[in-house]
Nucleic acid binder design. Structure first.
Lengths: 399, 399
DNA sequence: AATATTTATAACGGGTTACGAATTAAATAG
DNA sequence: CTATTTAATTCGTAACCCGTTATAAATATT
């Protein structure tokens, strides 16, 4: 527990001001003062300091004058895009995507590598990631020295605080200290995070949850992930662990415990078709879901049945999550959404059936089919968040 | 968001000091300084202010001298027990328990009313609660004017922030503004809280989670409740809602959705025996579980089967909760624990089976069979918690 | 009894913060 | 060109924490 001294006070207000500028675009000092409830004089001092540090910039040009307002015009302040550069990455079993963004989150360059890294030795994966980061940085016309921070999003159970990847489908080993490995390789601070957490923050900053401070996101990919936004912050499990929804138990089946991933995991949905040669090939190339989509359109009965079963399982799970967190919005993302109507309809139906009557209507379901870039952009947001969030977490007494 | 001014700074440090005094018993100023990492001079100023406000007291008497330590002896400071009085209550379907505690949480008087209030009109319930509170206060040798705050713990879904009881098995209606009702009746600030949340805080302050800042508690009573402690504070759902574990879906059964309460709720376990006249009578009198215990000892097959089924359902649920929150400890409380070995063993087995291998060993299961007093004491802790944060404890500038 | 040791408070200066009132800056209206 | 209006800054005030120093208090040691 940090002691509350003037330094902390300043840090809090600084962050508050900086965050208001980030959220509410170009904004004048008085508007900041109104939103933060800080005095104009304090805002002036803080913005001066931020300007001095090069984190924000005045905006003379546009001058969106509200016309016919007399008096000294407000000068709008906005984030200095060039105040920092970060790399965000999404590492999946058959695809890696990187983006370089500036301080504002604008994408400067992106790079997709459709490579299967599944179960490769750690060294090989690290090689590929390193290469991808370096290439993406070069593509942005930058050098690694210009990059302040890197965040990599992985599927599986990630311990954000320590940088360990506890378990992930793309690693044979468990408890891999990947953050340290990449930090030394790239000589740039690198953090790892659950891909679900990353895109959760991405949606909070850029996507479909900009207006909310509480929200739940469920990612349906090879692994089934969960991101919880609580009071504008990512809610991490005790110890900073990320959640692995796929391990949730749905009940007892004939073969013992029945877990969610055995019903709704990517491999569970597609797995039964491995006899089909072309399909197996498509899966290996990471096109499993799009190919499945085509099959469903062609009324492939077995796949449709799988999709329906998966939708039911996910619908029930979402109802349980809503029972626990009561978020105003649930965002669903991930490749499995490509299964289309059979999946989504059964998901909706199961959710409607399973949601307790008392909670009916408190949560809206939103489906989001953003591209992989957006995941990487979310990882970049995590990196940015770390860059200027540090002091705020330590406030509040330990009651 | 609150603006960070010197006043907030002082309030934070004050709370920090007050909290360390509460937690670490009689404690000297330098030890406070060490623990809080505040300077001795600041600690001196703050403790002087706390002494001035009568919230803490110096302790001359005991003087547990650490033997052969020369120099001026440390004077220990401790909470002033008489700085405040609160009432905590646990309201269940067939039993109400009240305690009056002082500022330190010591129980000054307790009162148990084994009355069935189940489904009575709101006015009747309010009458009984009012009567109980008044009698308990009198028993403590006090008058209601001496009581600073009251907290009542209810089963069901409680919206702590607004004081509304969203749904509870003891109310026919939903969305009852019970806090306001009791506040006016007793002319004392009254808050309502989920009984599970109350005993969660109780365990954090007085019970089996004093050493932890993250923890999960599961209450198995008429309703199935959940309390999550996260970073030393109660984690409430978005909107301040409490959780209702019983609504969790375990899977699809023959009759549609199968919820936890239909497997592990008190009535689900005992319900099948309503044909037995004596048993039904025992249930009506709130002795259902103890009677069930006797039946189990007598090898009542049907009841044992119910208990085993309930244990399995709860075990699976706990595994899911652990998957989501990864707490170092899970505390189980509630009347259903009285079912004994058949229930507990099947619970443990199901948990062991359902916990994901990667999380094996991160959580320890602790069973707690505290009496109803402890629940009420937990409610009192909630009331005290609120008092701590209320403005009156943060008096203005220190001279 | 005198001295050493440890704890607690008081007093001062230094540094930081936020805030309110007055002041300057920059534009429009007439 | 002046008056008006709004935005932003400067300046002075009060509060906070911190470090140092001095002083008082209470005990152990000599």
């Amino acid at each position: 527990m940090k002691t509350a001294d003037p330094e902390l006070m300043r840090a809090i207000n600084r962050l508050n001001v900086l965050d208001t500028i980030r959220r509410h675009g170009p904004i004048s000092r008085i508007e900041i003062s109104e939103r933060t409830e800080l005095s104009t004089t304090t805002v002036s001092a803080i913005t001066a300091s931020l300007l001095d540090d090069g984190l924000i910039l005045p905006r003379h040009e546009g001058d969106i004058r509200n016309e016919a307002v007399r008096g000294r015009p407000r000068v709008a302040l906005e984030l200095n895009p060039d105040a920092a550069r970060v790399v965000g990455g999404k590492i999946a079993a058959n695809r890696m995507v990187f983006v370089v963004t500036n301080f504002r989150g604008d994408v400067l360059s992106k790079l997709a590598l459709p490579i299967r890294i599944d179960r490769q030795p750690i060294g090989v994966i690290a090689d590929l990631v390193e290469d991808g980061v370096r290439r993406c940085v070069v593509d942005a016309g930058l050098s690694l020295e210009d990059v302040d921070s890197i965040c990599l999003g992985f599927p599986g159970v990630i311990e954000h605080r320590t940088g360990y990847i506890r378990s992930s489908p793309i690693f044979r080993d468990i408890n891999v200290d990947f953050a340290a490995e990449m930090s030394t390789r790239l000589s740039t601070p690198t953090i790892v995070e659950s891909d679900a957490h990353a895109i959760t923050l991405g949606h909070h900053w850029f996507g479909k949850a900009r207006d909310l401070e509480d929200m739940v996101l469920i990612s349906l990919e090879q692994t089934l992930g969960l991101g919880v936004l609580h009071g504008n912050r990512l809610f991490r499990g005790a110890g900073g662990l990320s959640h692995n929804l796929g391990d949730l138990v749905l009940g007892m089946g004939p073969n013992g415990v029945m877990r969610l991933f055995s019903q709704a995991g990517e491999s569970a949905i597609l797995g039964e078709h491995q006899t089909d040669g072309r399909f197996a090939e498509a899966i290996r190339l990471g096109r499993g879901m799009t190919h499945a989509q085509a099959l469903i359109k062609a009324d492939d009965d077995r796949l449709i049945a799988s999709a329906i079963r998966a939708g039911e399982a996910v619908g029930l799970t979402i109802a349980n999550i809503v029972t626990l967190f009561a978020p105003p919005r649930v965002i669903l993302v991930g490749s499995s959404l490509a299964l289309g109507e059979p999946f989504l309809n059964s998901l909706r139906d199961a959710y409607a059936l399973a949601i307790p009557p008392s909670l009916k209507g408190v949560s809206e379901l939103v489906f989001d089919d953003s591209s992989d870039d957006f995941w990487a952009q979310g990882a970049a947001a995590v990196a940015l968040y770390e860059l200027y969030e540090s002091p705020w977490s330590t406030t509040g007494p330990a009651l």
